[in-house]
Amino acid sequence: MTFKYNNVYIENTSTVAGPYEAKGPLKKYFDKTFDDLYNKEKSWELAEAKSLEDAIATLLKKSKLNKKDIDCIISGDLLNQITSSCYSSQKYDFPFLGIYSACATSCEGIILASTMIDSKKVKKVIAATSSHNMSSEKQFRNPTEYGAPKPKTATFTATGGATILLSDTKSDIKVESSTIGRIIDLGQTDPLHMGSVMAPAAADTINRHLTDLKRTPDYYDLILTGDLGTYGKEILIDYMKTEFGTDISANYNDCGVMLYDLDKQKEVLAGGSGPVCSALVNYSIIYEKMKKKEIRRVLLVTTGALFSPTMVYQHENILSIAHAVSLEVVS
């Protein structure tokens, strides 16, 4: 399912990043960072909601907009009942749509927002997402103070909130097209190797996007997956070659690998993950580079493991999904 859009533009973005991300190579590109994982709140969940609330506030300030100018917000995160999205958006009285695609949430938001704007029913829509290392560890794994040892293939949930404002007002960058992902199951069961779970979903979506639009990978200056990490990235390149005979390695990178300095920040293991991981990279350095016209065509492919601890304990496979959005500098 691939759509093309005629009148959808990126008006602005905002990023609020946590302490580990601030120690990484993208620090100068973030709008705001915080040093304490609690973010001056009482719990991990509230800390996550606060980071998204700050990101929305920053977006409105940067765009010089009032909250009444926004038609709708589409937001999702990893927590049960998408808690941080609800508790942060509630402060602004926006009409609210909650979504879930695990770490593929940011592109799902952009696809929905773009389709709404393209249909001319709305003018300005915010797509938002957040995640928090500690709130995710608490919900999906062990208590945060436990520090259970993990294998090298494990990824590290990024902390922060990020938003993108899409609008029908012309700007330098447009949302050109998008592809909705399918749910993929290739028999993976290891929650500490999410790269292997998500790589086939990314491959499927990239392949369908390229086939639907009759394009080759070199059409894009950059193809970016969400959070496959070091090993998932290798798997995807190999998968694309073996299954589709397509070589993407020339202009391909992964946000999970870009968000941290993998040589210095050993605690992140195979790289970043979480819905905000890809959003923090795409809405900061990628957006800036596109604004400066250093890169003109980018394919964002956010990847999500639809991971349920309950189903894993019941010995079911982990499902995955990937959504793609193509961004282009308007010439």
């Binding site: 040892p149 294998p151 028999g187 290798e234 190999d238």
Partner: peptide, 25 residues
């Protein structure tokens, strides 16, 4: 157009890093 699970497992195993088991032990 989706790969066989068996064939995919081979690709995953090929890119699996070796854990330093002896050192950990």
């Amino acid at each position: 157009m989706i790969m066989e699970k068996k064939q995919y497992k081979k690709i995953v195993d090929k890119h699996k890093p070796t854990e330093t088991r002896a050192q950990n032990a």
